[in-house]
Amino acid sequence: MDSITHTLFGLTLYGTVDKKKLDKKHKQAYLVTAVGASLIPDIDVVSSFWDTEGMYQMWHRGITHSIFLTPLWALFFSLLCLLLFKVKDIKLFFLGWLAVIIHTTSDLFNAWGTGYLEPVSSIRMTFGTIPIVDFVLWMIMGIAYIFSKRKRTKSPLYFRMAWMFIILHFMVQTIQGVFIYSQYDENYDQVALSAGFIPWTYSVITKKDEEVSIFSDSLFQKKREQYVLHSSEDANLDMLFDKRPEAKTLYDWAPFVVLVDDDDRIGLYDPRFYRNGQSFLFEYIEKNN
């Protein structure tokens, strides 16, 4: 998910806490823990500043998003609150733990995926059933906030209800996505799913031999072929990987790629992010250089 959504997740999680009997320092500690722990896995973005080997694609959403690291992040915020606010409360640990789990698990549902099981497994896990920016989630959390301001005494209830609707939304989107995926799985060598910004719509990316096709599909409309792409599977990628290590990282990171080998350049791109004639995850070199 994007940083705004993760921040809103943290604020919504903080909203579920009954704060009537909490003093100012406890409220601050709970807020810092809920929001901070909801964002902390994305601290890996700083790795881009020292990445000289083209590994950022692997580092981002890598080990910091591991489910095995979640209790350590929770412990970090417990110690931080003890240092900053002199607050020692076991509930802060569990709040932080839940916030980090929500972050790492929700990212599984995006096409980008995460290293959820690192370091046990380097496989990038992704379901592709929820868009990175999901306005339905924003709407659910926004409605909870509006109602909480009208009836402050029931504020935690509204935010807890919001989490129920968030879970329901994830379930409905994912069940539909899995069903649509299953319609393609037996007919192609490789299949990937990417949720659209419009609820219950999906892009299905398929590969068979040298042909990559991208379909728009949902349970409520007939599938529509959007793009047919050619992948030069016989291309020699040694020079590309030597000059652009980012290309090797992308090759290993993506479920599958489209290989480009023409008169001008050699490269590869991730077709899951193909829009308007190009993918924003495209690594290549010019042949005349």
Rank of each mutant, 00 (worst) to 15 (best):
Lys222Tyr: 14
Gln57Val: 12
Lys151Asp: 14
Ile180Lys: 01
Ile143Val: 15
Leu281Tyr: 12
Leu229Ser: 14
Ile67Phe: 06
Tyr116Glu: 00
Phe159Cys: 08
Ile90Thr: 13
Leu84Thr: 12
His60Thr: 11
Thr33Gly: 03
Ala162Thr: 07
Ile205Val: 15
Thr126His: 01
Thr114Met: 13
Lys222Ala: 08
Thr105Gln: 08
Pro71Val: 00
Ser66Asn: 12
Ala99Gln: 01
Pro255Trp: 05
Tyr116Ala: 07
Tyr251Ala: 13
Leu69Ile: 07
Val260Phe: 02
Ala162His: 13
Val133Asp: 03
Ala74Ser: 05
Met239Lys: 12
Gly277Cys: 13
Trp73Cys: 09
Asp189Thr: 12
Ser203Glu: 13
Ile266Tyr: 04
His103Met: 14
Lys154Met: 11
Phe165Thr: 10
Trp59Cys: 15
Leu157Ser: 11
Phe109Cys: 07
Val133Pro: 05
Val257Gln: 01
Lys151Val: 12
Pro131Tyr: 00
Asn276Pro: 02
Leu22Lys: 10
Gly15Ala: 13
Gln173Trp: 10
Met161Asp: 04
Thr16Arg: 11
Lys19Ser: 06
Phe273Val: 09
Ile43Ala: 15
Ile130Asp: 08
Ser47Glu: 03
Trp138Tyr: 10
Leu8Ala: 10
Leu250Thr: 06
Ala74Ile: 04
Leu157Ile: 15
His65Asp: 15
Phe273Lys: 11
Ile285Arg: 02
Asp2Pro: 11
Pro271Ala: 03
Asp238Cys: 06
Ile4Arg: 05
Val257Arg: 00
Thr201Glu: 06
Arg124Leu: 07
Ser218Met: 02
Leu268Ile: 11
Leu108Ile: 14
Asp189Gly: 05
Leu83Lys: 15
Trp253Ala: 01
Val178Ala: 14
Phe109Met: 05
Ile101Asp: 00
Tyr284Ile: 03
Leu137Thr: 11
Ser279Leu: 14
Thr16Phe: 09
Arg124Trp: 12
Tyr284Gly: 02
Phe68Ser: 08
Lys88Tyr: 14
Trp200Asp: 12
Leu72Ala: 13
Ala74His: 03
Phe256Asn: 06
Leu13Lys: 04
Leu95Cys: 05
His65Gly: 06
Ala254Ile: 04
Trp73Ser: 13
Leu84Trp: 09
Glu53Asp: 13
Lys207Arg: 11
Glu118Val: 11
Val136Cys: 13
Ile146Lys: 15
Val120Ala: 07
Met164Gly: 15
Gly36Ser: 10
Pro156Gln: 09
Ala195Asn: 09
Ile166Tyr: 06
Leu95Glu: 01
Tyr184Cys: 11
Met58Ile: 00
Leu219Glu: 10
Thr52Cys: 12
Gly10Arg: 00
Tyr116His: 01
Val46Ile: 15
Ser231Phe: 09
Trp163Cys: 14
Gly277Phe: 04
Ile167His: 09
Ile101Glu: 02
Glu211His: 03
Lys27Tyr: 06
Asp252His: 10
Asp185Trp: 10
Arg265Tyr: 08
Ser231Cys: 14
Leu22Asp: 09
Phe280His: 10
Lys207Ala: 07
His26Val: 08
Lys223Arg: 12
Asp23Arg: 15
Tyr116Gln: 02
Ala254Ser: 15
Tyr116Ile: 12
Gln57Glu: 13
Val172Pro: 00
His26Ile: 11
Ala111Trp: 03
Gly128Thr: 00
Asp263Ile: 07
Thr201Met: 02
Pro119Val: 07
Glu225Gln: 09
Thr114Pro: 02
Lys25Val: 06
Ser279Phe: 13
Leu95Ala: 01
Lys91His: 11
Thr105Ile: 13
Ser194Asn: 07
Asn187Val: 14
